[in-house]
Amino acid sequence: MSAVGHMRFGAFVAPFHSPKGNPTLQLRRDIELAVHLDELGFDEIWYGEHHSGAYETIASPELMIAAAGERTTRIRFGTGVNSVPYHHPYILADRIMQLDHMTRGRVMLGIGPGQLPSDAFMMGIDPRDQRDMMVEAAEVMLPLLRGDAVSRTTSWFTVDNARLQLTPYNPEGIEVAVASMASPAGATLAGRLGLSMLSLSATDARGFDALDSNWGVRERVGADNGHPADRSRWRVVASMHLAETREQARAEVEHGILDLCGYMEGMSKSKLPFATSPGAALDHWMTNGLPVFGVPTVGTPDDAIATIQRLVEKTGGFGSFLFLANNCATWEATKRSYALFAETVIPAVRDMNAGRVASIDYVGDNAGTFFGAMQDATREAIAKYRPK
């Protein structure tokens, strides 16, 4: 289905935790989610970085990865994403390199300019400068992560013949991905520097419309700069919650959807007109979408397969599908949603049971021959060993 072979699956955890809950337990569950996904066979999990707004409470994705890495064995971890202008690029690269060794090569670096303007203002950073700062930092971090020495002076940092003490755990190095939304800016940087892409808000109307065109930018700019595009390193992110029936899935998401709406209401200090009841809020979300979250898939495994197929048809194929964790359902319902996806959606998308289907078809198509021979053998054995 993916048009690039073996599609990978994972979660993108901002997170979005209600300020009505216990913040300690919420963070612990974000770590437990990595363990759960590891056991279910998911491929990766990405943790965000935010510093204000009450809901997105992970300030350091590196700390989450360090904790979850000790509790898992195979799942890969991404910073989703580091807000690069908030860090000296040498220090950030050095932390990522250490994590690469601590997790035995399971770390990926995700980079972005920073999403929340309130974060930037608290640090005295002009939001108009953030994207340029991200580019400047990326141009330094990439050679550092490759083991090169770097010297550069900008308006906000200096590196003087700087080099990291460690080299990557794996010979292929540390994968670096850049966030991409409706704007082609992320795709342009990915092409210029040879980065992977994280297409956030893939089911938002503008984000969905830009998926194929942004990939086209990645291909063209990459070709011009000697970095051929690789669809297997393209990740598409969308919000999803599954249950055995659509009605059950709706009820589970309605559990916390007004809290999620409260995030947007708190940011704007205005009441959302559709947030009058859980049902009305979910109807609006599933019809019109929400900023960042896009239009979610709230339904059954069949609905999830249809969403992924729609994304594949729009893009021409990508390497990974990531759940955008919305934290609306209870913890138990959330775990069950991921389990349903692992049990039914992953094998369907990967066509994991093609050999089994072919096997039963082969047996059925030749049943007369096989079972006829068995019956003949049985009759002969009876005749041969019948008491005289």
Rank of each mutant, 00 (worst) to 15 (best):
S2L: 06
V4Y: 06
M7S: 06
G10D: 00
A11K: 00
A11H: 02
F12C: 08
V13T: 08
A14P: 05
H17Q: 15
S18P: 15
G21D: 12
N22E: 10
T24G: 14
L25G: 13
Q26W: 09
A34D: 11
H36R: 06
E39N: 13
L40I: 02
G41Y: 14
G41D: 15
D43F: 00
E44I: 07
S52N: 05
G53S: 09
T57R: 11
I58S: 03
S60I: 05
P61E: 11
E62V: 01
L63K: 07
M64C: 13
A66Q: 13
G69W: 05
E70R: 14
R71N: 06
R74G: 10
I75K: 05
N82H: 13
V84C: 02
P85W: 09
P85G: 09
H88Y: 13
P89N: 15
D94T: 14
D94G: 14
M97V: 10
M97S: 14
Q98H: 15
Q98C: 14
L99D: 03
D100V: 02
H101R: 12
R104W: 08
V107C: 08
V107D: 04
M108G: 03
M108Q: 09
I111H: 03
G112V: 12
G114H: 01
D119P: 10
D119H: 13
R128Q: 03
V135A: 08
V135C: 06
A138D: 02
P143L: 03
L144T: 10
V150K: 00
T153C: 12
S155G: 10
F157D: 05
T158E: 12
N161G: 13
P171W: 00
G173T: 08
V178P: 05
V178W: 03
A187Y: 00
A187R: 03
A187T: 01
R192I: 03
R192L: 01
G194V: 07
M197N: 10
L198Y: 00
L198W: 01
S199L: 15
L200G: 04
S201Y: 15
A202W: 09
T203M: 06
T203D: 00
D204Q: 15
G207W: 06
F208V: 07
D209E: 11
D209L: 08
V217S: 08
R218E: 04
R218H: 14
A223P: 12
A238P: 08
S239Y: 08
M240S: 12
H241R: 01
H241K: 01
L242Y: 12
T245Q: 07
E247I: 06
E252A: 14
I257W: 04
L258M: 12
L260M: 13
Y263N: 15
G266F: 09
S270V: 15
S270W: 15
A275S: 14
T276W: 01
G279D: 06
A281V: 01
L282P: 02
D283S: 09
D283Y: 12
D283P: 08
W285R: 10
G289V: 09
P291I: 09
G294E: 05
V295R: 14
T300H: 01
I305N: 06
A306Q: 07
Q309Y: 04
K314E: 14
T315F: 02
F321V: 03
L324N: 09
N326M: 13
W331Y: 04
A333D: 10
A333Q: 12
R336I: 04
A339Q: 14
T344H: 15
A348T: 13
D351M: 06
A354H: 12
S359H: 10
F371N: 11
M374Y: 05
I382K: 03
Y385C: 10
Y385W: 13
R386I: 15
